[in-house]
């Protein structure tokens, strides 16, 4: 299969000024259209790795190439047209008087024309369904809505790759589902998605590739239906697969990880018919 390499990290090492070695020789290839989740404990290097993609952090050793550009040297403003980074807390970026103004800020900063800016803003408001609140003050919105505005701001730079840092943290199930459906929609439109998260159920239900980080290195890199069969390595890293996956394991489904309730239902139906299990990732 011809896949276009969009990000290539080679032996990345990052040492913070305080001496902490947050990345210790990470090599990773990310292809266009992937849906990737980076998991691991805090301090394992997830965010440090992600911040190398758009130049917020520079490698101490090694190289990071983003669509042919050396991201170890390019300006953040240049890289942010390729990599859209959505921070965990929308309140760390929102500051304008209206949502329209907020979305227009990025395009204005990178020198888009008035017409172009307006075109982008209108389109994004429509795509994300923000029409009813476009002239409202960002701080008058709920956290979930503020987060959608944060996504809108990243969209306004028209990047090809989106990095989401903990998109579901601090939200209830409904809020999490809503943001995930936006991310799924972006992925369906051809964008490359990278999610940093602790939410294993979300990883199981949405991601197509799981990168597990531990102590600044990649400990595991596999599709979720494979990754979540590695119970022992996951347990040593204190990562717990979703409850339904663990239940399936206890019931003896061990060759493929069951990733959601629907797959479990299908598997149980199958086992009733022939007591043989034929299910797995392709159910998605």
């Amino acid at each position: 299969m011809d896949r276009e390499l969009i990000i290539h990290g080679e032996n990345l090492t990052h040492i913070y000024p305080n001496g902490v070695e947050a990345l210790r020789g990470v090599t990773i290839d990310i292809y266009r259209g992937e849906y990737l989740a980076i998991v691991g404990q805090n301090g394992s290097g997830k965010t440090t790795l992600a911040k190398h993609l758009n130049g917020l952090l520079r490698p101490t050793h090694g190289a990071i190439i983003v669509r042919g550009i050396d991201a170890g040297k390019a300006k953040v403003s240049e890289l942010s047209r390729i990599i859209g980074y959505v921070f965990q807390n929308p309140d760390d970026m929102l500051f304008c008087n209206s949502i329209e103004e907020e979305i227009a800020f990025g395009p204005e900063m990178i020198g888009c024309s008035k017409e172009e800016t307006k075109h982008r803003v209108d389109e994004i408001i429509q795509v994300l369904g923000l029409e009813s609140m476009s002239d409202q003050h960002p701080f008058a919105l709920s956290l979930g809505d503020r987060q959608r505005v944060a996504v809108a701001c990243a969209l306004s730079m028209e990047p090809e790759v989106f990095v989401f840092d903990e998109p579901t943290t601090g939200q209830d199930y409904f809020g999490g589902q809503r943001i995930m459906s936006i991310i799924d929609q972006l992925h369906a439109s051809g964008k490359t998605i990278i999610i940093i998260t602790h939410d294993m159920q979300m990883v199981a239900e949405h991601a197509q590739r799981v990168v597990v980080m531990s102590a600044g290195q990649i400990a595991l890199d596999a599709p979720p239906e494979k990754a979540f069969t590695q119970l022992e390595p996951l347990e040593t890293l204190s990562l717990r697969p979703p409850q339904i996956t663990r239940f399936a394991f206890r019931m003896g489904w061990t060759d493929h990880a069951i990733l959601n309730v629907q797959q479990m239902l299908a598997a149980m139906n199958g086992s009733h018919a022939s007591s043989k299990i034929e299910t797995g990732g392709e159910a998605k």
Binding site: D172, Y173, F174, Q201, P242, Q243, I244, F247, N260, V261, M264, L265
Partner: peptide
């Protein structure tokens, strides 16, 4: 809008 444990969801179905 509350998500019960997955084993409950399975059992409802």
């Amino acid at each position: 809008r509350i998500r019960p444990p997955q084993v409950c969801q399975l059992s409802y179905e």
